[in-house]
Design a protein around this nucleic acid. Structure first.
Lengths: 221, 221
DNA sequence: GTTCACCTGAACGCAACCTGACTGCGTTTC
DNA sequence: GAAACGCAGTCAGGTTGCGTTCAGGTGAAC
């Protein structure tokens, strides 16, 4: 289960700590930036499953950033970090469309639990994705409504592909994403996993969900 | 539309205030009771859109009540009211399947905003209820109408699984939920308890109530 | 036609998990 | 106080299935 999270935090030390900690807790940190403009610039077609945004950013207020995301049609849940615990901040945070907030200083474990809760809720309530997507809670893929059980490695590999839906993902990127850092992965191993994924995902009538881009990598529609 | 809310609070004055206030804010207070048994007895076929439950009830702990709701297949979001602001309470609240909490004393406006946020995110689609649920009073499980006595640890473990019915619960989450915080739990201990639960729960004809998700954890249908 | 990248079925080692039996400890019963 | 009992945790051995590799086949590029 690899929910992806984007972090927007200007305190470099805190941001690094969050990235490392969340990775250890099984999140994929798909984006980690210091400010709002960087977030909006770096946001790919597929948004992360959840945002962590500091309310006190140097370039733009976290609440405004939240509004900007919503205006762009991004409906992934947002957790606001606020240094000031005052009620006013909390309320305006909710008014801006944020789904939760956490006053600093906070316990890291609590952040993780809140994020999991948001992913759990948000993932289900989000716009119904058509075709192929991952059910994080059930730890399986869903293709045309059909549930497909996946092993941990298969799951990470498909997640890496879906994180860049519509793009070609290079072979070494897939290996970096789906295998532990530093692991030595034979080239054929990746091939074998793609085959397994195809066999599990593909219906009878359907052409393959994963397309090969010879010499580069793979992509999903 | 008028979101409906159920209130479980033993403080009579607070409960009356909440009922009146939430009605003024456009909620329909479909149920307003003083304790957990009253809630479970009064729960109609159609559950409310959201629950507000005091953690310190006279007859049953709010977290256990939350577990009981989840175990009965009720997935409407739950907001726990807690007088104690300690981190332990917060965490165990989440482990019990609650979706949010609010430490007393709280601003009424904040409660309203949190409830609106919970309703907006909405409950998950009701999963097909299997005949498995927990009987808090008797401290036993019921499977297809058959009562099954459980030891305390077995009970907590099954409760943690049922709190996330239909989802895969990670091994370390189960350990965190079913054993005291900080306890060192051998990996095999969890395995052994799952075996015991299966043996107790599984009927003759039935396939196992608890399914293994290799490398991740377990889940119940 | 040759080469190279990728496909695919089969096989193997190992880690994860299952399971029955056992021990230790606290409580209850006589 | 001794015996009986139930619960929690541990151990050893068996089983399963995941991850990986190998060998051979297939098809695209040139």
């Amino acid at each position: 289960m690899t929910p992806s999270v984007a972090i927007v935090e200007d305190d470099l030390a805190l941001r690094a700590g969050l990235s490392r900690g969340l990775r250890e807790e099984g999140f994929e940190v798909s984006l980690s930036v210091a400010g709002g403009t960087a977030l909006l610039r770096g946001l790919k077609d597929l948004p992360p499953d959840v945002f962590v945004i500091d309310i006190g950013l140097p370039d733009v207020d976290g609440r405004d950033l939240c509004l900007a995301l919503r205006a762009r049609g991004v409906h992934a849940p947002v957790l606001l970090l606020t240094a000031r615990g005052g009620i006013t901040d909390r309320l305006s945070g909710f008014h801006s469309g944020a789904d939760d907030y956490l006053p600093k200083p906070f316990h890291f474990e609590e952040l993780v639990l809140r994020l999991r809760a948001l992913v759990r809720r948000g993932g289900k309530a989000a716009d119904p994705p058509s075709g192929l997507y991952l059910d994080l809670a059930a730890h399986e893929a869903r293709n045309a409504g059909r549930g497909v059980g996946l092993t941990p490695t298969e799951f990470r590999l498909l997640a890496a592909l879906l994180a860049h839906r519509g793009e070609v993902v290079r072979r070494h990127s897939l290996i970096a994403a789906a295998w532990p850092p530093g692991a030595i992965v034979h080239d054929n191993t990746l091939d074998a996993y793609v085959v397994r994924l195809r066999r599990k995902l593909d219906g009878i009538d359907q052409s393959s969900a994963i397309t090969t881009v010879r010499g580069i990598g793979y992509s999903v529609g």
